[in-house]
C-alpha cells in the first residue's frame, strides 16, 4: 500500500514539564514522552505502533488527535498543518479524527445511556439533526458495531467489556472520521473477545475506508492488523516499515528483542526459539541516555552508540524483497 500520507508528523515532541525545582530537585526537567518523531500514516492503511509501557506510544496517539498539545514539531493532517489551528477549525478537525480508548470501563460516562454516548459526536458537530433522524443514526451505528439498537437506553454498567468497547467504537465512528487512533483497543478485553473486536475493526476499516493508528504493546496482535509497523522506544521511533519485513527481519536490535519474545505456535520451533532478554529497565524519559537511547540495554552496543544519535535510515529491500523498512541504528552505518 503506497498511498499518500493522511497524517504526517515532523520532529514531534511532547514534553510534560515537571514541577519547578525545590530543595530536593536541582533542575526543572520534563518528561520527554515523545521526543522527536517523524512518522507518516497513509490513507487507508493501518499503522501499528508498538513499544513497551512508558515508551510514549499512547502520548503520540493522543497528540495526533490533539488531546495533548505538542511541545515542538508539526502534525499535518490531510495536507494542512494542524499544530497551530484556531479553535473553530480544530472542532472541524475533531470530526475527522477519533480515538478508541484502552479501558472500555473508564471510557464511557457511567451517568449517560449508551445511546446518549454514541449520539454525543452527532450533537457536537450538528449532524443528523432532529430527534428521529438522530435516533435512527444511533440505531444504525449500534447495528454497525454489532449491538442491538433497542439497548440504547441502557447504561454502560449493564454491558460486558466487549460490548462496551463496541459502544466506544460506535461513538468514534459517529462523526464519520477519516482517521482513528486505536489506543490498545483490545488490551483490557477477555482473550475470547479480543478476536471479535479486532475483526470488527478490520471490517469497519474496509467498509468505511478508515485509516488506523493501532497502538499496542503486543507485537503479535499488531502484526495481525497492521500494514506497516512502527516500533517506539523511549520517545523515539526506532524502526518503521512493512509489517512482514519488520516482523521477519528486524532492522533494530530492540525490534529483534521484541520479535524474539513472541511465542511461536509451532511446538518444535517454539522449543528452539532463541529469546533475547533485555537487561535492566527502560531509562528515565526525563534524562534519556546520550547518543542512541537504546544503548544502555542493547546487546550489540559498540563505540559510536554513546556519541551519535542515530537517525532512521532506509534498509530498502536489503533481503531481496521490495519491502520498505527503516531503522535508527548504527549497525547499518553510523549516522547522526
Amino acid at each position: 500500500m503506497n498511498g499518500e500520507a493522511l497524517v504526517r508528523t515532523t520532529g514531534l515532541r511532547v514534553h510534560f514539564p515537571l514541577p519547578p525545582p525545590g530543595p530536593l530537585r536541582s533542575s526543572p526537567g520534563a518528561v520527554r514522552a515523545v521526543d522527536g518523531v517523524d512518522l507518516e500514516i497513509r490513507r487507508g492503511e493501518t499503522l501499528g505502533l508498538v513499544g513497551e509501557s512508558g515508551c510514549g506510544k499512547s502520548t503520540l496517539g493522543s497528540a495526533l488527535v490533539r488531546l495533548v498539545e505538542p511541545t515542538e514539531g508539526t502534525i499535518e493532517f490531510d495536507g494542512s498543518d494542524v499544530t497551530a489551528m484556531p479553535r473553530r477549525e480544530l472542532r472541524a478537525l475533531r470530526r475527522r479524527t477519533a480515538m478508541i480508548f484502552q479501558d472500555p470501563f473508564a471510557s464511557l460516562d457511567p451517568r449517560r445511556t449508551v445511546g446518549e454516548t454514541i449520539a454525543e459526536p452527532l450533537a457536537i458537530h450538528r449532524l443528523h439533526r432532529g430527534r428521529s433522524r438522530r435516533r435512527a443514526r444511533v440505531g444504525e451505528l449500534m447495528e454497525l458495531v454489532g449491538l442491538a439498537p433497542d439497548h440504547r437506553n441502557r447504561y454502560p454498567h449493564e454491558f460486558s467489556g466487549g460490548q462496551r468497547q463496541r459502544v466506544g467504537i460506535a461513538r468514534a465512528l459517529a462523526g464519520e472520521p477519516d482517521f482513528v487512533v486505536c489506543d490498545e483497543p483490545i488490551a483490557s478485553l477477555d482473550v475470547s473477545v479480543q478476536a471479535q473486536v479486532v475483526n470488527l475493526l478490520v471490517r469497519l476499516q474496509r467498509e468505511m475506508g478508515l485509516t488506523y493508528l493501532f497502538v499496542s504493546h503486543d507485537l503479535a496482535a499488531v502484526r495481525q492488523v497492521a500494514d506497516r509497523v512502527a516500533v517506539m522506544y523511549l520517545g523515539r521511533v526506532v524502526e518503521v516499515g512493512d509489517g512482514v519485513a519488520v516482523g521477519e527481519m528486524p532492522g533494530h536490535p530492540y525490534t529483534e528483542a521484541l520479535v524474539s519474545a513472541v511465542p511461536v505456535p509451532v511446538p518444535e520451533r517454539e522449543r528452539s526459539r532463541e529469546r533475547i532478554v533485555l537487561q535492566g529497565d527502560i531509562p528515565s524519559p526525563t534524562h534519556p541516555p546520550s547518543g542512541c537511547r537504546f544503548r544502555t540495554r542493547c546487546p550489540q552496543v559498540f563505540e559510536p552508540c554513546a556519541d551519535h544519535d542515530p537517525v532512521l535510515q532506509s534498509l530498502g529491500g536489503r533481503h531481496g524483497g521490495p519491502a520498505e523498512q527503516s531503522a535508527a541504528c548504527h549497525l547499518h552505518g553510523v549516522t547522526g
Binding site: S62, V65, F101, I124
Partner: peptide, 10 residues
C-alpha cells in the same frame, strides 16, 4: 477517560 473521550470528539 470519558472526559478525554468527549474532548477528542470535539
Amino acid at each position: 477517560v470519558y472526559v478525554r473521550a468527549a474532548r477528542s470528539a470535539g
